[in-house]
Simulated scan of single mutants.
Amino acid sequence: MASTSHRVLPGFGLSLGYTLVYLSLLVLIPLGGLILKAGTLTIAEFWQIATTEQALASYRVTFGASFVAAAINAVFGLVVAWVLVRYPFPGKSLVDAFVDLPFALPTAVAGITLATLYAGNGWIGRHLEPLGIKIAYTPYGIVVALAFVTLPFIVRTLQPVIEDIEPEVEEAAASLGASRLQTFVKVIFPAIFPALLTGFTLAFSRAIGEFGSVIFIAGNMPMISEITPLLIIAKLEQQDVVGATALAVVMLVISFAMLLTINALQWWAANRHKGRAA
């Protein structure tokens, strides 16, 4: 008598239907409406709105600060994840819990706190400004806010991968005469690079759309420290829905292109690592 396999979820057809409906309601239909609204503009009108001097400056600030923040966290997030996995120390559980604090803390609260700390009279800012380093109300403040918000994405993506790397691998490399740097570059880094790239992608994606923590520390000066989401909000407040939609579509297209490129690099890195392992 043939055994019947039981599954927790319903059959493929029904599950796929639920998936498509849910995805459509949350993602596809809103994005489709956004594109249709922007489609009411002619190409010349769309180009004129999307390429104003203020809009171009906001793109540079938004994507530049997001990339820098994600890159910084790729380095220091790797260090944090490595320490949390490999080294026992007093208060480790508390430090591990602090990593998730940006997830739980409202972004507006984070922005106000960072602006207070890094302002000219803040606990940190008053020591930096005499050195000629101004953080609050500059693009540097945006990078600080985005780095704070996106750190957990890097750490939590890397931790399980580092846990899967046995310490014996490092010992074997050392026994063959490899230095610590050679062991990291030749053995450890290829194994964690796909996960690191995934964490970078998640952090970068999160940073692009960040608003609450940025507006309090950025200063929001046009052409200097104004992010595109803030410019979109400003257009909506001016009842310029079509203009806001045009900027949103530009953000969508650029973000999708960059994420597609990063995902292609991630796929290449993962396949390359598998090929080496085989």
Rank of each mutant, 00 (worst) to 15 (best):
V169I: 12
F211S: 03
A2Y: 10
M1L: 02
I208M: 06
A65M: 06
E163H: 11
T198L: 10
L31A: 07
S225M: 05
A277W: 00
E170V: 04
E170Q: 08
L196K: 00
A145L: 13
L260I: 01
V187G: 01
I135R: 00
A269Y: 06
M1I: 03
I208H: 01
L14P: 06
L114A: 06
Y59I: 07
F98I: 12
M223H: 13
V95F: 13
S3W: 10
T19M: 14
L259G: 10
A115D: 12
P30E: 12
G17D: 13
F67R: 05
A207M: 11
I227L: 13
S58T: 13
I188F: 05
Q266N: 15
V21I: 13
L260K: 11
A270E: 11
V80P: 07
F148W: 05
E210M: 09
A257W: 05
A246W: 03
I192E: 06
L252C: 09
L105T: 14
S15W: 05
I217Q: 11
F189W: 04
P160K: 10
Q54R: 14
Q182L: 08
A264K: 12
A145W: 06
M1E: 00
L128H: 01
A136P: 02
D240L: 12
S15M: 13
W268P: 04
A172Y: 05
W123D: 04
L16P: 08
A172W: 08
L128G: 02
V185Q: 14
Y22D: 03
L158R: 09
I112Q: 02
P90Y: 04
G275Q: 03
K235V: 02
L146P: 00
G13R: 14
P160Q: 10
F153V: 08
W267E: 12
T157N: 08
T116Q: 15
Q238E: 12
V68T: 15
A2F: 11
A2P: 15
I154S: 04
W268G: 09
A81E: 05
V161K: 10
G177D: 09
A115T: 11
Y18C: 14
L41T: 02
L202C: 11
L20W: 12
V187R: 10
A191S: 14
I232T: 10
L151S: 02
E237Y: 11
E226D: 10
A70V: 00
E170P: 01
A246G: 07
I124A: 00
L131T: 00
A71G: 13
V109N: 11
Y87L: 12
W47P: 02
Q239C: 04
I43H: 03
F67Q: 09
L16F: 15
A244P: 04
A136Y: 02
P160W: 11
A277Q: 14
S175V: 15
G199N: 06
T40P: 00
H273R: 14
A234R: 14
L230M: 13
T19C: 12
Q54A: 15
T51F: 15
L78E: 04
F211A: 02
L16C: 14
S213Y: 03
A257I: 10
A70H: 05
A44P: 01
A264L: 15
Y22H: 04
L36W: 11
L252Q: 08
F67T: 14
L181P: 02
R276V: 06
S175P: 07
L26R: 03
L26S: 04
